[in-house]
């Protein structure tokens, strides 16, 4: 309700807009709160519980960053964003970081002037069909009716895939995931296509999950990751290395349970450097020594977060797959803390 502040600053808007974005870290510290853009609701990635507390895979990134920067993982203001509002919210400074299952693409990186700081989930578009359809490969879907969300990249991917394979299909336009589930269950379409993670969580809540299969083909690359505005490299580094710390922590066996103990000193100098026992990596980011320790303590390392929100122990039941550590045949890889 600071209307006078708003009016007063209007006059210097043009001046300030140029360089006001270069110190996100200072803004966040001064505010004492991280503004984190999340999905308005996507199972496993971001959803509020009965008490209004946000939880999920993307939300854990926000918590880790808040813990690293502000020392308290609860000092996050979650800003729900739709696919239409997310980029404007970030570009205008309404949010400091967007952690909302956003696909890293060339144009978003280069043209929209954002910096993707990493990939926290490697996703891809897949198909789900009823088992009694007798289809075992997406290449057999010629002439099928396909439920598809309009206005998304999945729609374009689908068109590409069928064109390349010389097949035809009948699209059934849907607006939301919930509507898609309903239509697919009602038999309005032979196949339902969306991101593989979405398919898995959708199938998991069906009355008879075993009656449906997810086809093996993944027809697109959807690397999802957090992003920030271009031009504030220090802030981008903070998010990037907070995320790297979570991945490295899993690699080195640092968990939320033992991080306190390990921070007192270990035989592994890399762990010591990361947790602040040796050297002063935090200062190079403009943070204190224990930033990574707090980030890991917030909701655990990458593996713990995955297991708690998406993993096989949850109803979504996603396997690690591409998101396993590089040491286990996946793509999750953190550059060295040195």
């Amino acid at each position: 309700m600071k209307t006078s502040v708003f009016l007063g600053t209007l006059s210097v808007a043009a001046l300030a807009a140029g360089f006001a974005s270069s110190a996100t870290l200072d803004d966040v510290k001064a505010r004492g709160e991280l503004n984190c853009g999340v999905n308005t609701g996507l199972a496993g990635f971001a959803a509020p519980d009965a008490n209004g507390n946000w939880q999920g895979f993307d939300v854990a990134i926000c918590k880790a960053v808040a813990a690293a920067v502000l020392g308290d993982s609860s000092k996050v203001k979650y800003v729900p964003t739709t696919s239409e509002t997310r980029f404007t919210a970030l570009a205008s400074g309404e949010i400091d970081v967007l952690s909302r299952n956003t696909t890293w693409t060339f144009s978003r990186d280069a043209d929209l002037k954002f910096t993707f700081v990493g990939v926290n989930y490697y996703d891809g578009q897949g198909f789900m069909v009823r088992k009694d359809l007798g289809v075992t490969s997406a290449k057999e879907l010629d002439g099928a009716t396909v439920c598809i969300q309009t206005g998304t990249t999945t729609e374009l991917n689908l068109a590409d895939f069928f064109k390349v394979n010389n097949m035809s299909y009948q699209p059934v336009a849907i607006q939301t995931n919930a509507e898609g589930e309903q239509q697919f269950l009602a038999g309005a379409c032979d196949a339902y296509t969306t991101d593989a993670s979405g398919l898995a969580s959708t199938r998991a809540i069906f009355p008879n999950p075993d009656d449906y299969i997810i086809l093996p083909e993944i027809i697109s690359k959807e690397p999802l990751g957090p992003l920030v505005r271009q031009g504030d490299d220090q802030w981008a580094d903070i998010i990037r290395w907070t995320y790297n710390a979570l991945v490295a922590a899993e690699e080195y066996g640092v968990t939320s349970a033992n991080v306190e103990e390990l921070s007192k000193g270990t035989d592994n100098p890399e762990i010591n450097r990361m947790l602040g026992g040796e050297g002063d990596l935090g200062a190079m980011l403009g943070l204190d020594k224990e930033w990574a320790k707090r980030a890991i303590a917030a909701s655990g390392n990458y593996g713990e977060i995955f297991a708690a929100t998406l993993g096989e122990g949850t109803p979504i039941g996603l396997a690690r797959g591409l998101n396993a550590l590089w040491t286990q045949g996946g793509l999750q890889y953190s550059p060295p803390f040195r």
């Binding site: 308005t40 609701g41 199972a43 959803a47 509020p48 939301t176 979504i316």
Partner: peptide
């Protein structure tokens, strides 16, 4: 509705 539906308890 979407936010509630996104929680694993009430998805679907």
């Amino acid at each position: 509705t979407d936010a509630v539906r996104a929680s694993l308890d009430w998805k679907g």
